[in-house]
């Protein structure tokens, strides 16, 4: 239960959004050359961090745009929000 500042619409309730899981997982450039281990790593394995984690979110009941979020999963505090394609904040 928290508020999220959508980079397009402003501050809204979390229930308007949907979480899209860990961010910055890059789709393999040459899928045909991947081993089963590498596929498993890409498809299933997650950092699932307790602490500061980079995530994707979508404003489902709003502008329906995707964006990235840096959030502390131990207390749900949002540290930063940035648009898709932008570089993640380093601090």
């Amino acid at each position: 239960m928290f508020l999220i500042h959508c980079p397009y619409c402003g501050e809204r309730e979390q229930s308007e959004f949907k979480a899209g899981g860990e961010a910055h997982i890059v789709r393999p450039k040459q899928p045909t050359e991947l081993s089963d281990d590498q596929w498993a790593e890409y498809l299933f394995m997650r950092k699932n961090i307790k602490g500061v984690q980079f995530e994707r979110w979508v404003h489902t009941h709003g502008c329906r745009k995707w964006f990235n979020m840096v959030r502390d999963t131990s207390n749900d505090e949002i540290k930063a929000i940035y648009k898709m394609g932008e570089k993640p904040p380093t601090k």
Partner: peptide
């Protein structure tokens, strides 16, 4: 369940 990763043992009101 909530659809986001969290260790806060709280969960959303909705």
């Amino acid at each position: 369940t909530d659809d986001y990763v969290s260790y806060s043992q709280k969960g959303s009101h909705d």
